[in-house]
């Protein structure tokens, strides 16, 4: 039920997957929206604080997910083409890497001059004891283009899942929605 089996994802992996999917979409939308707000919008400050707070929370969930994945059985891919399975696997790994780059870059923007990141006004995440020239600007570009790239991969990922469901008519998508009984 909670753990993965050779044919099915467990509840933990499923919840982590969808929680992070929703959070990443939310952060992407919020990020694009907040930079367009003008100085006198009442949410000009709040949107940024929220984006950072959710972002740091996402990092915690992300780390737990990597750990959980490392300790879990991987359900066997259902696709018949080995090449496509390998491609899908590579795309998953690349998405993890891009997400890591995005959150590190986001952290480096906000901590570029040693200021901490306040998370939901509950606690602070300190800045590292090093900086580099134009840190906020460079990290800002990496953060933005990284996010766009990630969403590009997500679209491919979604198209792949829909192909499995509607064209291949296998359970790739279904088993990411609910744990399957071993048959």
């Amino acid at each position: 039920m909670f753990k993965n089996t050779p044919s099915s994802y467990g509840l933990v992996a499923i919840i982590l997957h969808w929680l992070m999917a929703l959070t990443i979409f939310g952060l992407f939308g919020l990020g694009l929206y907040m930079v367009e707000l003008t100085y006198y919008d009442s949410w000009y400050k709040g949107s940024l604080d929220l984006h950072k707070s959710i972002g740091i929370t996402l990092v915690a969930v992300f780390l737990f997910r990597i750990l959980w994945r490392a300790l879990s059985t991987h359900p066997k891919p259902l696709g018949e083409s080995k090449g496509m399975n390998q491609l899908a696997h590579t795309a998953h790994i690349v998405m993890y890497i891009i997400l890591a780059v995005i959150v590190v870059a986001g952290y480096l923007i906000s901590t570029a001059d040693g200021r901490p990141i306040e998370v939901f006004t509950l606690f602070n995440v300190s800045a590292l004891d090093f900086t580099f020239d134009d840190q906020a600007d460079i990290a800002g570009k990496v953060h933005y283009y990284g996010a766009c790239t990630l969403i590009g991969f997500v679209i491919l990922h979604v198209l792949g899942a829909l192909k499995h469901h509607f064209i291949d008519k296998d359970k790739t998508l279904v088993r990411m929605i609910k744990p399957l009984k071993d048959d």
């Binding site: 923007i109 906000s110 570029a112 001059d113 200021r115 134009d134 840190q135 906020a136 600007d137 800002g140």
Partner: peptide
């Protein structure tokens, strides 16, 4: 102009 410094990296990024 890239050397703008208002003692707040995030604001400097915005101003640049």
């Amino acid at each position: 102009t890239t050397s703008l410094d208002s003692n707040h990296a995030e604001r400097d990024k915005h101003l640049r």
